[in-house]
């Protein structure tokens, strides 16, 4: 049970980073990135290739993941950043699907559907089994805290205010002489780099990655985290990720109660529940559990862009 809890918390830390990353893109800036898994996967594979194929230390793997993830984010956003919400969403979705195809087919690089084995782990040598798990959890929580602190500071800074202004109405900051495109690009690159970092951590944790780890369903979980937690609020993103992980992992315990169902059916049922909850939250509480809080007086309409 103890080991299971540690495993759930470790996964939760990865989702916290993903939700925070999406929050800077969507929550603050209003950029709809449905290609979360694309950047997440790019980070995972980059890090794996760096440490396994090229034999570099794990920190270099993470760094490479962040750089490549940021570059990919830059390219995708250059293609599509001028587009309004829906089209950006579709382009990013297409990007994620294309990356999944690449992971599946570029066998020489990613070992395709057989899976990429990653031996390097973010631990010091000589720890016992349990201690290793706790150590990894510690590393992940630390990474999540760092991402939180950095992004939270950014969100409160003048930079974050410009992003929010762009989300509300990009004509206003443009009129004030802000380069809206550059701000959007920066927000997108930052978020993508953080998603890639999450992917790197995940890869070194699970140690075998296959293209199936990076399907749209993961993106739905991340979006669910952000919407449930409260788009625009960094604390909300953290709470949302924890709640969604709790629901997702918690429904695992339903399986023994429903022995008449096959594992496929149980897994399908979990996603039916998650999808339904997402729609219900969007309808009845679009501002999420922790709504974005901004100095009063500044916004007469308390419904964030998610609404």
């Amino acid at each position: 049970m103890d080991a299971y809890l540690v495993a759930i918390l470790t996964t939760a830390a990865v989702y916290v980073i993903l939700a925070l990353a999406l929050n800077i893109q969507f929550g603050l800036t209003g950029l709809m990135n449905f290609g979360v898994v694309g950047f997440y996967g790019v980070g995972a594979y980059t890090s794996g290739i760096m440490t396994e194929t090229l034999g570099q230390p794990i920190l270099l793997g993470m760094l490479a993941a962040i750089v490549v993830g940021g570059l990919a984010g830059g390219l995708v956003s250059l293609l599509s950043i001028r587009l309004s919400g829906d089209f950006l969403a579709i382009v990013t979705l297409g990007f994620a699907e294309t990356m999944r195809l690449a992971f599946n087919n570029e066998d020489w690089l990613t070992r395709g559907p057989r899976g990429f084995l990653i031996m390097t782990r973010p631990v010091i040598d000589g720890l016992g089994r349990g201690a290793t798990a706790w150590f990894i959890l510690g590393v992940f929580v630390l990474a999540a805290i760092i991402v939180f602190v950095v992004l939270n500071r950014l969100a409160g800074s003048p930079f974050g205010r410009v992003l929010r202004a762009i989300r509300e109405d990009d004509l206003v900051p443009a009129t004030l002489g802000k380069n809206v495109l550059a701000y959007r690009l920066q927000a997108f690159v930052l978020g993508s780099a953080a998603m890639a970092l999450a992917g790197s951590l995940y890869a070194h944790y699970v140690q075998t990655i296959t293209p199936d780890n990076f399907t749209t369903q993961v993106a739905v979980l991340v979006w669910m985290s952000l919407i449930v937690g409260g788009a625009g609020n960094m604390k909300g993103a953290v709470v949302g990720a924890l709640v969604v992980t709790a629901i997702y992992e918690g429904t695992r315990f339903l399986a023994p109660l429903m022995e008449f169902l096959t594992p496929t059916q149980v897994s399908a049922l979990r996603f039916i529940i998650i999808g339904t909850l997402l729609i219900v939250v969007v309808r009845y509480r679009p501002e999420g559990l922790l709504p974005e809080r901004i100095a009063p007086r500044s916004r007469p309409d308390p419904v964030p862009a998610a609404g």
Partner: peptide, 23 residues
Amino acid sequence: RSGGTLLLVSIALSVIIDNVIRF
């Protein structure tokens, strides 16, 4: 609601329908 919200909802719906079929 905004087009983005509806797109998000339609993706969620898509996941639900897929999984009902899988179920």
